[in-house]
Design a protein around this nucleic acid. Sequence first.
RNA 1: GGCCUUGUAGCUUAACGGAUAGAGCACCUGACUACGGAUCAGGAGGUUGAAGGUUCGAAUCCUUCCAAGGUCACCA
Length: 614
Amino acid sequence: MSIVSILDSGAVKAAKELYGHDVESGSLPLTPTRKEFTGDYTLVVFPLTKAARKKPDAIAEELGGWMQENIEEVSGYNVIKGFLNLELGAAYWNDFLRNAVKAENYGRLSPKGKKVMVEFSSPNTNKPLHLGHIRNILLGWSCSKILDAAGYEVVRVQVVNDRGIAICKSMLAWKLFGEGETPDSSGIKGDHLVGKYYVIFESKFKEEYKSWQDSEAGKAAFAEKAKEGEPEDKFFKRYKNTYFNEHSQLGQQAKEMLLAWESGERETVDLWKKMNSWVYAGFDQTYNRLGVEFDKLYYESETYLNGKDLVEKGLKNGLFKKREDGSVIVDLTDAGLDEKVLLRSDGTSLYITQDLGTAHLRYEDYKSDKMVYVVADEQNYHFKALFETIKLMGEPYADGLHHLAYGMVDLPTGKMKSREGTVVDADDLMDEVIAEARENTKERGELESLSAEEREEIIKRIGLAALKYFIIKVTPKKRMIFDPKESVDLQGQTGPYIQNAFVRIKSVLRKAGEQDHGSFELYEELENQEKEVLLRLSKFPEIVETAAAEYDPSEVANFCYDLAKEFHRFYHDHSILNCDSDNVKKFRIDLSYLTAEVLKTGMDLLGIQMPDRM
RNA sequence: GGCCUUGUAGCUUAACGGAUAGAGCACCUGACUACGGAUCAGGAGGUUGAAGGUUCGAAUCCUUCCAAGGUCACCA
């Protein structure tokens, strides 16, 4: 039982015995005592004033007395303005450290017997991954690690959007202008090569559109369809889609390609397979470097027709309605949403149809109790509608669905826009942070004795730690501003700062040599800074639990920083190896060891690896 | 326009109804004959977007307003 729940249930019992009042567990707020006061945990007794009909101070006094008397761990207390500061004895902290340091996997919670599926990344195959994907991937990966640590069985999946008009654009441009270029012949990474042709398509299309605008047909369209007083550029911006669909040569060809693909036309399918395989090879490299992997991939080319039967079934059961034009809709007005079309009037499926099918399929495949979708918050409405529809259908997995929505990533200069070329490429970004780490490492010269290979591995860990921590420390649902300059910082609240705490400990432990963990005798005169570190350490399991419950890796990130900072302080002011008592030395070595373990585990939950030196 | 989300130091951020709003960056000042200075200590910087309300207590809950973003497709 954790100390918090011991104190909490103690307070409940005390309220009952002293005032005959039933309070719910957790209704008396219990928080770590602020630094400026003495004590370890603080109980707020205000909620008891009515039941006890006494002043807060008096209640706190009585409660404190009772708890010191009846709870073994409580060694003393003091009362300030209705806040009851409880002190835990040195014995408690000694026991805590001894147990934790001997534990197999401190911070790993016992199995929950439940399975959770996490879907993340889910890219399109027409262009390489960018900064937005990185936030998605880090969140998804980290969540999956945290859920795993919290005792869930985890399945990591991604849905690969490998079909549709976008990839056809790349294919068409390659066919028309590629002259047989391949990743091998050009030396360009596969996903970047395909992305290059996507860009070529867009610029050729733009050219074509521009000259059409100056032609008779274009002028006629403007004269006919522009709104009153609408300027030419505005009109043509708005008209772009229509032009693509109705007039464009390239658009026509791309659409024909899509149709050919859908009808399984050999040459097109072969080209599609070839180009997608380039992209996958590229993605694999990026994922690999980021240190993430998946248990199962779902390809939209295989699932995009799914879901129709589910809709038909719902229609039969009267859950959905057919409109006059033949389209099928679901009425979600009871849930505060609108009507949603589930099937086009021509009977073809939509995004949501496919998602219904995929959800069902995945449940069939894994029978997971929960399914988490890591998708940007621009799709909030879609997921609301999707989940409500699944609930209406009474699917067994309906209550376990969760949309982990995260805010989009902005640059200091504003939004990322592919059309304006301001998209930050994932591979480039990693190159940059690693280069920065290399530069810094060189200046320091700590790693010169290592082989080039070892050195590169450490440099990679440092660079990626900076990048990943910078992104993952922000609460998911907030939009974040990504400043490339700050993301390579190695000082302050950063990944490398936390790594540095770990490296310092490793260095000390190397010098200390082997030691049996938990072999220290009772150490009574704990320093404040030792207690601060112990307090952080003792909170770790609880942090894992809430981070899992809230799907929020930033809690773990902030915890790691806090722990590292507290350790740095302790380390600065107290000597571990040269302290005056052998017993204290043993204690401090264990304290350091546990800190290193927790930092390593915690950072691993964020997808960040620790170097042994740096 | 309806709905959703977000507004905290110059910048990036923490806080899940509790004490004097906590950090980092940038700026200024200090600390290595000490286990790793990618560190530590200190200074300066805040009417938590605004106004009301609920509460013993509000950045946090409620109302109104302001600002930014998202979304309201037989696109994905």
